[in-house]
């Protein structure tokens, strides 16, 4: 009985983990290229969630179709914030970029609150569910999982098969070297930042499939912390590492919840969140370059 429940939860964990992973790729991409930690990461996920909500409730557009829209919105926001703010801070002390991204996050949250209000909202997309014996999976979650895998593959292809992708890769390796070889480093920075934000906003769409009524301007904070744990698991500067970090994190989160629920007198959900904080510290202490990275 318990084993069945655990297996069921772990399967749910993998499905959620794939989406977590995709939701962290943008963070890792931006850190890998610009060496900037986007502390406002969660707020961009929130923007994606509101794009979905608005498209669905106001225009009746299918959440799957919201993904490209959210991606475009994210790219736009990314370019705006890059050229107005980040570009001037590339050479500034770390303090500056950390606080700038943090403030951008707050700004987005407050703008969304101003427009949509601060109550919890949701949408109701009925697509049925599938029973796989140990657990029941809503089709919407399955779509989110498949969507995440497809986006991760597309990013891989973009990096390895396109000119722009290889320019960005060369900047990750050695920005001075890339400059000498005629790569437009400033352009690569702007593109990577926008792409990273685009991916993050798009991931917000997929994450709404897991929180049907949990959409709120301040929903991002929890995801920022999770994304850091995942990114650090995967090595912080590798988008693919982040994807696998997400899978691992989904498993750990759901597995530990099942185990904590066995302890009487505790609140398992809160302990799961505490565990992710302990994991973050532990990984940073043992191997800051990431447990899943080979470096």
């Amino acid at each position: 009985m318990f084993l069945e429940q655990l297996t069921g939860n772990l399967i749910q964990g993998i499905v959620l983990g794939a989406v977590y992973g995709m939701a962290t790729m943008g963070l890792s991409l931006i850190f890998g290229v610009l060496k900037v930690v986007n502390v406002g990461h969660g707020a961009f996920i929130m923007v994606g969630a509101f794009v979905t909500l608005w498209l669905f409730n106001a225009l009746g557009i299918n959440p799957i179709l919201a993904v490209p829209v959210a991606f475009a919105v994210g790219m736009g926001l990314g370019f705006i914030f890059y050229y107005t703010t980040m570009q001037r801070l590339i050479k500034a002390p770390e303090l500056a970029t950390l606080l700038a991204t943090f403030s951008i996050g707050i700004l987005l949250e407050e703008l969304v609150k101003l427009t949509f209000g601060s109550e919890f909202r949701g949408y109701n997309w009925v697509v049925g569910k599938i029973d796989i014996g140990v657990t029941v999976l809503p089709m919407s979650k399955l779509y989110a999982c498949i969507g995440s895998v497809i986006i991760a593959l597309l990013l891989y292809l973009w990096f390895n098969k396109t000119r722009a992708g290889s320019a960005v890769r060369s900047v990750v390796e050695d920005s001075e070297g890339a400059r000498v070889c005629g790569v437009n480093v400033g352009g690569a920075y702007a593109l990577s930042f926008a792409l990273g934000i685009g991916l993050t906003v798009a991931s917000g769409v997929l994450l709404t499939m897991f929180i049907p009524v949990g959409i709120n301007p301040y929903m991002g904070g929890g995801y920022t912390l999770k994304a850091f744990v995942i990114a650090v698991l995967g090595g912080l500067s590798s988008p693919y590492g982040a994807f696998f970090g997400g899978l691992a994190f989904g498993l750990i989160e759901n597995g530990s919840y099942t185990l904590f629920a066995l302890i009487p007198g505790v609140e398992p959900f809160a302990l799961t969140r505490f565990l992710s904080f302990v994991m973050l510290l532990a990984i940073l202490l043992i191997k800051p370059t990431g447990l899943l990275s080979t470096k």
């Binding site: 904070g221 912390l225 904590f260 609140e267 959900f269 302990l271 969140r273 904080f277 302990v278």
Partner: peptide, 15 residues
């Protein structure tokens, strides 16, 4: 970034 949240969830989770 997680210290405050972590500590809060420890207090809440472990009562």
């Amino acid at each position: 970034i997680g210290v405050n949240e972590g500590f809060r969830f420890l207090i809440e989770g472990a009562r």
